[in-house]
Amino acid sequence: MTKNNPDVDNYIAGFPEETQKLLEQVRHEIRKAAPDAEEAIKYGIPTLILNGNLVHFAGYKNHIGFYPAPQGLEEFKEELSGYKGAKGSVQFPIDQPLPLDLIARITKYRIEKNLEKPETKVKKKEIQKSKKPSDKEQVSVHIQKLHAEIREAVETIRKIILNTDQEIAERIKWNNPSFYYTGEMKPFDPEGI
């Protein structure tokens, strides 16, 4: 299973002890049904994500809200008929036992549906971001575009700066090569000069 998300822990901790127990039961059942899903806070409530939003759950004064999207509720319409709800949500009263088996089955159904759809937009964005050249590659490309005489001078200066200390790195900043220190900064000691 993925690690618990501290934000979800904090969300649950904000409720009275009895409600916390119910939220943890729901969380445990969902995570057991979807061990590869990631936890996050979305729309202000705990969310499990697997190729897009899988299910959400939330605590309220008189009920635990469960949000598997309309698709998850339609399939289980008869079993959910004893509970209040809307198009994409169902309310489980806090004074009744939670239907944990039903929550697990709905979650598994949502997994099937999510895995049928193509990769989510978020993952496509992550792939695009991973193709971005490194800082060093960006500097090299920038320098290659310079006029030959300027390029030679810039390369010479670049080598001098980078050879000064192994903890100096480079990047493009303000449309030019820029250098910065990656090591630990030590306090200035005027007597050590």
Rank of each mutant, 00 (worst) to 15 (best):
T2E: 11
T2R: 12
N5F: 01
D9W: 03
D9S: 13
N10C: 00
G14V: 00
P16Y: 00
L22M: 14
H28Y: 10
I30H: 02
R31M: 13
K32W: 00
K32F: 13
A33N: 05
A33Y: 03
A34D: 08
P35M: 12
P35L: 13
A37G: 12
E38A: 15
E38Y: 14
E39R: 09
I41D: 04
I41S: 03
K42P: 06
P46E: 04
L48R: 00
I49M: 07
N51R: 04
G52I: 05
L54P: 01
H56I: 01
A58T: 10
Y60D: 09
K61Y: 06
N62L: 04
H63G: 05
G65P: 01
P70G: 15
G72V: 02
L73I: 15
L73N: 03
F76S: 05
L80D: 04
L80P: 05
Y83C: 07
K84T: 06
K87A: 13
K87L: 08
P97G: 02
L100F: 04
T107I: 01
K108L: 14
K108E: 15
K113C: 12
N114P: 07
N114R: 08
K117R: 15
K117E: 11
K124P: 00
E126C: 01
E126P: 03
K129G: 13
K131D: 09
K132Y: 08
P133K: 10
S134I: 07
D135G: 06
H142F: 14
H142I: 05
I143M: 09
K145I: 00
H147F: 00
A148G: 10
E149W: 03
R151S: 09
V154H: 06
T156I: 00
R158I: 06
K159E: 12
I160W: 11
N163W: 08
T164F: 15
Q166P: 13
E170C: 02
E170A: 01
E170H: 00
I172M: 13
N176Y: 03
Y181R: 08
T182N: 10
G183W: 08
E184L: 14
P187V: 11
D189S: 13
P190I: 11
P190T: 01
G192A: 15
G192E: 12
I193D: 12
